[in-house]
């Protein structure tokens, strides 16, 4: 009966995952391997193709109420929602403007992704019964880790899918962007290439995401015990899931848990990049939601 309960939990979370996250790993890998049946993604590999790629995307405005107070940079983004002209100033060269527009569009997608992760978190049994302040803390500290994990299925060693799989942006192009933009994605590629060797499927990913959200060691939590209890149940469910989906992969559960340490370092480095951008990019602003998440994070 206990195993049946753990399987039911796994199914419940998987349904929430499918409901909230539009691009699954299965679909992303199909696109990347050319087996999706759809048209191949548009490839962005230089400034010219970036400009052409803009035509692929519906414009989406970035709210920027605090433009004059905080001038930061984009959060990392698992996709590109829209390239907008909202922040394209009249000064500077075309490449600079394009880069800014691109990273602002990353912000828009990040904000949407935070909303998706929040809805997923709310579907974890017991999560909404936690102290509301603790729910906020779990999201604040967990959400960038989740976004990084969710980028992995979109990536291979050569680049990443963006814009819900409609576009493939090459790693070399991302690397060629001006500092520190050009440095921001490399650590995520390095992590993702290693993470992808674990060959998790969407079911495995679902439970791993829930485990990350339910981390009882986030700074400032008021009531750790119920969080740890919830996490323990999800951990059991994950362990069972991995035994079923990867019977021959010994130590996969342990290997996966070790990734949580790497993730925290990547988030710390990411926050450092944001601080650098804050100094260098005077035309950038950070979405208020992303400001909330990044402020006093690490």
């Amino acid at each position: 009966p206990e195993a049946a309960d753990l399987r039911a939990l796994s199914r419940h979370l998987y349904e929430a995952y499918l409901k909230n996250f539009p691009l699954t790993k299965a679909k992303a890998r199909a696109i990347l391997s050319g087996k999706a049946g759809d048209k191949a993604p548009f490839v962005i590999h230089d400034m010219k193709s970036l400009m052409e790629g803009e035509q692929f995307i519906n414009c989406r405005q970035i709210p920027c109420q605090e433009h004059h107070q905080q001038q930061l940079a984009p959060a990392l983004a698992p996709g590109l929602a829209g390239l907008t002209e909202a922040h394209c100033g009249s000064d500077g060269n075309i490449s600079d403007e394009l880069e800014l527009r691109f990273f602002n569009s990353c912000q828009s997608r990040s904000v949407e992704a935070v909303r998706e992760v929040t809805e997923f978190a709310k579907s974890i049994p017991g999560f909404i019964d936690l102290d509301l302040n603790d729910q906020v803390t779990l999201l604040k500290y967990g959400v960038i880790e989740i976004l990084i994990i969710m980028m992995a299925p979109l990536m291979n060693k050569d680049g990443t899918l963006i814009s819900y799989g409609q576009i493939f942006m090459t790693r070399e192009f991302l690397k060629s962007l001006r500092k520190p933009f050009g440095q921001m994605m490399e650590p995520k590629f390095e992590f993702s290439v290693k993470f992808n060797t674990l060959e998790l499927d969407d079911n495995d990913m679902t439970l791993f995401l829930a485990v990350i959200i339910l981390s009882g060691d986030r700074p400032g939590l008021l009531n750790v015990k119920p969080i740890e209890r919830l996490q323990e149940t999800v951990l059991h469910s994950l362990e069972l899931q991995l035994k079923i989906s990867h019977p021959d992969s010994l130590q996969l559960f342990a290997k996966l848990l070790q990734k949580m340490t790497d993730l925290r370092q990547i988030v710390t480095d990411h926050v450092h990049f944001i601080q650098l951008l804050r100094k260098r990019e005077v035309d950038m602003c950070l979405h208020p939601l992303l400001q909330e998440i990044m402020k006093d994070l690490y």
């Binding site: 709210p63 909303r115 929040t118 604040k140």
Partner: peptide, 20 residues
């Protein structure tokens, strides 16, 4: 609570992206 106003909103409502 003020420091994380939008996160609170997201947790308590089904805030649409447009609202953000």
């Amino acid at each position: 609570k003020e420091k994380h106003k939008i996160l609170h909103q997201l947790l308590q409502n089904n805030t649409s992206p447009g609202d953000l």
